[in-house]
């Protein structure tokens, strides 16, 4: 019981401490590059990575395209076998089209790993 109480106190202290950690605020009016407030973990990338797991009933080429027609990835998908592919898209792209065997499916990019099965 004593150990449990001690553990609780430590956990509460940790939570309280971490909740006091403040994120650096952006400089609203930077005049030079050195004025920029940049987080340590900023990747400096203008793209996002996604992993898609796709499946279909016939062996056909599947294409992942942007709504502007840009082709991010294409490959042959073997019938009834999961096909895992990775795409890297501009960070502002939030929707892609999956094209397969005459079907066009719009997929919202809401997660780093997504899956879709064609009928």
């Amino acid at each position: 019981m004593k150990k449990l109480s001690l553990l609780l106190v430590v956990m509460i202290a940790l939570i309280a401490f971490s909740s006091c950690t403040k994120e650096p605020l952006p400089n609203p009016d930077p005049k030079t590059m050195d004025d920029l407030v940049i987080k340590d973990d900023f990747s400096w990338k203008s793209t996002m990575d996604y992993e898609l797991t796709l499946q279909g009933t016939v062996s056909r080429v599947v294409m992942v395209t942007g709504t502007d027609g840009a082709v991010y990835k294409k490959g042959l998908m073997t019938a009834n076998k999961a096909y895992v592919l990775k795409i890297t898209v501009p960070a502002y792209v939030k929707t892609v089209n999956l094209k397969y065997n005459g079907q066009v499916v719009e997929l919202s990019l809401t997660s780093a790993k997504m899956s879709y099965s064609f009928s």
Binding site: P26, P30, V37, I38, K39, F42, S43, W44, S46
Partner: peptide, 9 residues
């Protein structure tokens, strides 16, 4: 650019 950087993209 500054807004992109300071917002972590």
């Amino acid at each position: 650019f500054a807004e992109w950087v300071q917002s972590s993209g």
